[in-house]
C-alpha cells in the first residue's frame, strides 16, 4: 500500500488528465448519441486541431488559450461542413456507409498531415508550462488545472445549450425520434451537421488544453481517441454525463495503475476496465443516453 502522500497527488493528477479525456469522449459520444455512428475521424481531427494550436503559437505567436477562441469556432464550421457536404451526402443515409466515410476521412487527414509535417514530433515552450499550484498535499501543474476548469465550463455550456436552446432541443429530438422531428419541420441534415460541428469543436478545445504540456505529431490524436472510446463504452454510448464521469474515472485509473505497475504500464488498467465493462456491463455504467 502506498501512503496518502503519494496516493492523493496521483488521484488529483488523474482527475486533471481525465478531464481532457472526458472532453474528447464528450465529442465522440455526442456524435454517437445523435447520428448513431462512431466517428472514426475523431482522432485525426484532434490531431489536426493540435497542429492548429501548434502553428497558431509558432506562426502567429498566439497563446493556446487565446488560439482556442479562434480554433473552436473554426472547428465547429469544419465539422459542420464535413458532415453536411461530405459525410452526409457520401453515405446516402446508410449508417454502414457513414462509418466507412469517416474511416476514409481519417486516413486522408492523417496522411495529409504526415505529408505536410512529416512524422516529426513537435512541442511548444510556454513560460508557464512548468508552473505549479501547491495544494499542501500535492503540486498540480498549472496548465492541467486550467484544462480541468475549462472542461467543466465547456460541459456546463454544452449542457445549457442542449437543455435550453431550440437547437439543443432539436438535437435531442432528432437523437430519439428522427421521423417525429422531421414532421415538426426540423431539418435533420442541419441538426446532424450541427452535432458533428459541436463534437469537432470539443476537439479544438481539447487540443488547445493539451498542447501546453503535450506534443503533436501526425498520430498524436489517436492515443486519446482510443481512451475516449473506452470512456464512451464505459459511460454508456451516447451518454453525456457518462462521458464526463467516465473520463474522470479513467484518468484516475490510469494514474493509479501507473503508480502501481510503473509509468509505462499505466494504460493497461484502462484496457482491463474496458474488457471488464464489455464482459459484464456492455450497455455501460450509465446505461442509455441522457
Amino acid at each position: 500500500m502506498l501512503s496518502p502522500i503519494i496516493l492523493v497527488p496521483a488521484i488529483l493528477n488523474g482527475l486533471l488528465t481525465g478531464a481532457v479525456y472526458a472532453l474528447v469522449a464528450l465529442g465522440l459520444t455526442l456524435i454517437y448519441g445523435v447520428l448513431h455512428i462512431i466517428n472514426f475521424a475523431h482522432g485525426a481531427l484532434l490531431t489536426a486541431a493540435m497542429f492548429g494550436a501548434f502553428f497558431a503559437h509558432r506562426l502567429l505567436g498566439l497563446d493556446p488559450y487565446v488560439a482556442a477562441l479562434l480554433l473552436t469556432p473554426a472547428f465547429f464550421v469544419l465539422g459542420y461542413a464535413l458532415q453536411r457536404f461530405i459525410i452526409g451526402p457520401a453515405s446516402g443515409g446508410e449508417d454502414r456507409n457513414i462509418l466507412l466515410v469517416t474511416l476514409g476521412l481519417a486516413v486522408v487527414i492523417e496522411n495529409a498531415l504526415l505529408y505536410a509535417f512529416r512524422a516529426d514530433t513537435r512541442t511548444i515552450n510556454l513560460p508557464y508550462a512548468f508552473d505549479v499550484v501547491d495544494l499542501g498535499i500535492a503540486f498540480l501543474a498549472v496548465p492541467r488545472v486550467i484544462a480541468f476548469g475549462a472542461v467543466i465550463v465547456v460541459a456546463l455550456v454544452l449542457w445549457l445549450i442542449m437543455q435550453w436552446t431550440d437547437t439543443g432541443k432539436a438535437i435531442r429530438a432528432v437523437a430519439k425520434e428522427k421521423v417525429g422531428a422531421e414532421l415538426c419541420g426540423i431539418d435533420v441534415a442541419h441538426v446532424y451537421a450541427v452535432t458533428f460541428g459541436l463534437g469537432t469543436a470539443c476537439l479544438a478545445i481539447a487540443a488547445c488544453l493539451l498542447i501546453p504540456t503535450y506534443y503533436v505529431n501526425p498520430h498524436a490524436g489517436n492515443a486519446f481517441v482510443l481512451i475516449a472510446f473506452t470512456i464512451v463504452v464505459l459511460g454508456g454510448m451516447g451518454s453525456v454525463t457518462g462521458a464526463l464521469i467516465g473520463g474522470l474515472f479513467i484518468g484516475v485509473v490510469e494514474s493509479l495503475s501507473g503508480l502501481y505497475l510503473g509509468e509505462s504500464l499505466g494504460q493497461i488498467g484502462i484496457f482491463l476496465i474496458f474488457i471488464l465493462v464489455l464482459l459484464f456491463r456492455p450497455s455501460g455504467l450509465f446505461g442509455a443516453r441522457t
Binding site: K169, R172, A173, K176, E177, V179, G180, L183
Partner: peptide, 12 residues
C-alpha cells in the same frame, strides 16, 4: 402530418 405510432419525443 401527425404520424402513425405518434412518434413523440419520449425523453422530453
Amino acid at each position: 402530418h401527425v404520424p402513425e405510432g405518434r412518434r413523440i419525443f419520449p425523453n422530453m
